[in-house]
Lab assay of single mutants.
Amino acid sequence: KTVKFDGLQFDFDNPEKALKFALEVAKQKGAEVHIHGDEIKIE
């Protein structure tokens, strides 16, 4: 899975870790997590 935000991109082999990371970043930024297939966007 790939996590994208602020023009940055982070690749994870483990989908659970990717989602956990995305949710943590979103919480800190006050943003929402959007999942599109293998891509997780924080907006």
Score class of each variant (00 low, 15 high):
residue 1 K to R: 12
residue 43 E to Y: 12
residue 21 F to S: 15
residue 30 G to N: 10
residue 15 P to R: 09
residue 17 K to V: 12
residue 3 V to L: 00
residue 1 K to V: 14
residue 6 D to L: 08
residue 9 Q to D: 06
residue 31 A to Q: 07
residue 27 K to F: 10
residue 38 D to A: 09
residue 39 E to H: 08
residue 31 A to D: 04
residue 8 L to F: 10
residue 43 E to T: 11
residue 24 E to H: 00
residue 23 L to T: 13
residue 12 F to I: 03
residue 27 K to S: 09
residue 4 K to H: 11
residue 41 K to L: 15
residue 24 E to R: 00
residue 11 D to T: 12
residue 36 H to M: 13
residue 13 D to A: 07
residue 12 F to M: 02
residue 43 E to D: 08
residue 5 F to Y: 11
residue 29 K to C: 15
residue 24 E to W: 06
residue 18 A to C: 13
residue 27 K to H: 10
residue 17 K to A: 14
residue 15 P to T: 12
residue 28 Q to E: 10
residue 33 V to Q: 00
residue 10 F to L: 05
residue 18 A to F: 02
residue 37 G to E: 07
residue 22 A to Q: 05
residue 22 A to E: 12
residue 6 D to I: 01
residue 20 K to L: 11
residue 18 A to P: 00
residue 31 A to N: 02
residue 38 D to K: 09
residue 34 H to A: 07
residue 22 A to Y: 06
residue 29 K to Q: 10
residue 24 E to S: 04
residue 12 F to S: 04
residue 9 Q to E: 10
residue 23 L to I: 12
residue 16 E to K: 07
residue 36 H to T: 11
residue 25 V to Q: 05
residue 41 K to I: 15
residue 18 A to N: 10
residue 33 V to A: 03
residue 10 F to H: 01
residue 8 L to M: 11
residue 4 K to L: 12
residue 33 V to Y: 01
residue 37 G to A: 08
residue 41 K to A: 11
residue 37 G to I: 08
residue 9 Q to H: 08
residue 41 K to M: 14
residue 7 G to K: 04
residue 16 E to I: 09
residue 13 D to K: 02
residue 27 K to G: 08
residue 17 K to D: 15
residue 31 A to I: 08
residue 23 L to R: 05
residue 3 V to D: 02
residue 39 E to F: 10
residue 21 F to L: 13
residue 4 K to R: 11
residue 21 F to P: 15
residue 9 Q to N: 06
residue 5 F to C: 15
residue 30 G to H: 07
residue 41 K to C: 15
residue 15 P to L: 14
residue 22 A to R: 00
residue 14 N to F: 04
residue 26 A to T: 02
residue 31 A to C: 15
residue 11 D to E: 12
residue 37 G to T: 05
residue 15 P to H: 11
residue 7 G to N: 07
residue 4 K to T: 12
residue 3 V to C: 03
residue 42 I to L: 07
residue 38 D to G: 11
residue 22 A to M: 04
residue 13 D to V: 06
residue 15 P to N: 09
residue 29 K to E: 08
residue 19 L to N: 03
residue 32 E to C: 15
residue 31 A to T: 07
residue 30 G to P: 02
residue 18 A to H: 03
residue 43 E to W: 09
residue 39 E to G: 05
residue 7 G to R: 04
residue 20 K to N: 09
residue 22 A to C: 14
residue 38 D to E: 08
residue 12 F to H: 01
residue 10 F to K: 03
